[in-house]
Design a protein around this nucleic acid. Structure first.
Lengths: 200, 200
DNA sequence: TCTTTGTTTGACCAACTGGTCAAAACAACG
DNA sequence: CGTTGTTTTGACCAGTTGGTCAAACAAAGA
């Protein structure tokens, strides 16, 4: 029987997670220090460790919370509905995620690029199952001649790649474009790409 | 007047750079330790520091060497030549880079995702100039009606995203596909994407 | 008020990290 | 061989890092 969290617990846990997201997404797991996170959360380091047992626990909590929302855009893709529009909408939702949650995107990118040591199970479990399920739907659309004959898995990968790139490689894009907002022009371009690819 | 490197110097410097590439690409700059690199190179830590003055120097040397080869695929794109084929070939070369040099790709990805602290100058300098130059060529092709009317910068970004994704998110792709080789099927898919997008 | 429970902190620790240094070991060459 | 320059190493150091702990401090209910 676990006790309900007090006001202070709620506030401080939230502050720590926000601070952790800030720091971990910028420097990766090993590149981040408890002192940095504590400072960002406005707490002392021992106080931090009063709420979370370890650095790893903060990181893991963040990843778990992230994975929930991370798969939502794909989950919303429905078999009943206009195929092209469904895929276009998925790509749009995914791009919006990159735009609205770039820190989450980079946290995820850091984790994956470094070999996904904390979430390997999830990738070959939950994620794989979801992707396989949706890929089957796309395949049916293909076979029914409703969209072009494309590999469903690679189609999904291409949406991940195209959308996450704008959040993860943010610095590079801004440097090349010379703009402050890396997303300018991205939405119509990706829309055009997906439309072209799906055209039967 | 700098002396020419001895045999031993050549061998050890090369071993250190290889080891550094292995380690840095896996764990990022801060996540890697001199002990790891020394062990991977088969040297003691002080011996490592006999050849390179600091951890930073190894990392910087790697990045510099990398940037040279990293831009080559884009540099090879020529204005005289079939537009669609030139862009297709660029995408193909870029994908081959990801397949043949995944460690380099991840080293680069780690650096960029974490804000490119070591190569920010390069991005807004050399890289931007090259991209702008090639984007101008693509724009001319568009305006001449030789390819579809697409934003040249985003076209280049999409090639980066689509190709690098297979090296950088390697673990995720392998987990979802259940294969050992993340690149299976990637080449024809990307080819199809680019052809569709460029079709006028 | 007193007591209980929850919160915060300063001082501390052991392990690790990047880096130094002097001395030893080795290689090259006359 | 002996000398000279190169390479390697063990011992060491100061700063950082994740984490502990007892004690001080606040909240809140009885």
């Amino acid at each position: 029987m676990t006790k309900p969290p007090t006001r202070i617990q709620k506030r401080n846990r939230a502050a720590i997670l926000t601070a952790g997201l800030d720091v971990f997404s910028k420097f990766g797991f090993r590149g981040s220090t408890l002192d940095q996170i504590a400072a960002a959360a406005g707490l002392s380091k021992p106080n931090l460790l009063y709420y979370f047992p370890s650095k790893d626990a903060i990181y893991t909590a963040l990843l778990e919370r992230l994975l929930e929302t991370w798969l939502a855009p794909l989950q919303q893709m429905r078999q009943d509905g206009d195929p092209v529009q469904e895929i276009l909408d998925y790509a749009r939702r995914k791009l919006e995620m990159s735009r609205d949650y770039p820190r989450e995107s980079r946290l995820f990118a850091n984790e994956i690029v470094q070999g996904a040591p904390h979430i390997a199970d999830n990738l070959s479990g939950e994620l794989r199952a979801l992707v396989d399920e949706k890929a089957a739907i796309v395949r049916e659309w293909s076979e029914a001649g409703l969209i072009a004959d494309v590999d469903p898995h690679h189609l999904i990968f291409s949406i991940w790649a195209l959308t996450q790139h704008y959040a993860d490689f943010d610095v590079q894009i801004r440097a090349v474009l010379g703009t402050d907002d890396p997303f300018v022009g991205a939405a119509p371009f990706i829309d055009h790409v997906m439309r072209s690819v799906l055209r039967a």
